[in-house]
């Protein structure tokens, strides 16, 4: 493991067993995350970004799916080979996760304090008054007003934005060194989105955390990420520093994504979109998964899958013709 990396994923593949066959939601994905870096993962729904995160946390439902690969190195352990007990000590402690839906991610029948306190008790051994005090401090640190009162309240008494703050407080409770944020603002109003992003930025800066930030919103990526991975149909298509993503995108899919954003400048034009459909995960073409929708596709794209190749320092792309 390279010294300045906190996470190295190699050859991660995640499969789900469905009635119509085995589906590969994440296909041979390798990447690394540097200490203190915010790595954005973008792609459309179903491209495998959330499944990648759940695979790293080993949170997949075992009855339906499983992840395998060469390794997922985190600090000096391989997350793929940890026992259930060992991975439980990592989760919520060294790696924390924030989910997309604050409305359903909190348990409706336990108080906020109870739910935050669980992690404090499990990983830090806090109990009683000390635990409650720490919960209140955490709520205050995510700008929740009247934390002494909120700590005894239940999720249904809070708004969506407040609940997401609670989720963030919960994730931060044990000072994780890696935070996985899975579309943390997607379900929120635009104004609340901005507040939550600001809060996350402040916390990431203050605690010098490494972050995996999953989103399909390129605006959010521009705001948050240092480096970006673009995923499509379970594969990494491009790895690019955030500046270059917008200045010099290389993969035709990335270019398509950037062109399909609504723009305030060019009013009155129809939104461009990428023609065609994502291929079914059940029936993947042998070549590049994007070939059928790609303006630059040639015969070679349909017969073989291009490798991820470096075209500039820190900028790699999976395309023959980029």
């Amino acid at each position: 493991m390279q010294e300045n990396n906190i996470l190295e994923v190699s050859g991660l593949t995640t499969e789900f067993h469905t009635l119509s066959g085995t589906v590969r939601a994440v296909n041979n994905v390798s990447f690394s995350l540097r200490k203190g870096e915010t790595l954005g993962i973008v792609g459309e729904s179903g491209c495998g970004k959330s499944v990648t995160a759940l695979s790293i946390m080993r949170l997949l439902d075992r009855r339906f799916g499983h992840a395998y690969g060469e390794y997922i190195r985190f600090q000096d352990q391989d997350l793929l080979t940890l026992s259930d007990k060992q991975i439980q000590n990592v989760r919520g402690n060294e790696i924390a996760m924030i989910f997309q839906e604050p409305m359903t991610a909190l348990n409706p029948v336990f108080s906020i304090g109870n739910q935050i306190g669980e992690a404090l008790e499990k990983h830090l051994g806090l109990r009683g008054r000390e635990k409650k005090q720490r919960c209140i401090e955490l709520l205050r640190s995510v700008n929740i007003p009247r934390p002494e009162k909120i700590v005894t309240e239940y999720p249904h008494q809070l708004s969506g934005g407040m609940r997401q703050r609670v989720m963030i407080a919960m994730a931060l409770s044990c000072h994780p060194c890696l935070l996985i944020a899975d579309e943390p603002t997607t379900a929120l109003d635009v104004t609340i989105q901005a507040q939550i992003l600001e809060l996350l930025q402040r916390i990431i800066r203050e605690q010098a955390m490494s972050v995996m930030f999953i989103t399909h919103d390129l605006g959010v990526i521009a705001e948050m990420a240092d480096r970006v991975i673009v995923m499509y149909a379970g594969r990494i298509m491009e790895v690019v520093p955030v500046r270059e993503l917008f200045a010099a995108p290389a993969h035709p899919y990335t270019i398509g994504l950037l062109h399909s954003r609504p723009s305030l400048v060019a009013k009155g034009h129809k939104l461009t979109c990428i023609p065609g459909m994502v291929p079914s995960l059940l029936d993947m073409p042998p070549g590049c998964p994007f070939a059928d929708r790609c303006p630059r596709a040639e015969a070679d794209c349909r017969s073989s899958l291009p490798e991820l190749r470096e075209i500039a320092p820190g900028h790699a792309v999976r395309c023959f013709h980029a």
């Binding site: 989760r91 919520g92 359903t104 669980e118």
Partner: peptide, 21 residues
């Protein structure tokens, strides 16, 4: 449910996840 996944993500034991949450 999502909250069960959240409970697991906190690092709680499978026993607590199932028999509490």
């Amino acid at each position: 449910m999502d909250y069960t996944r959240t409970a697991r993500a906190k690092g709680l034991s499978e026993h607590t996840v199932i028999y509490k949450h």
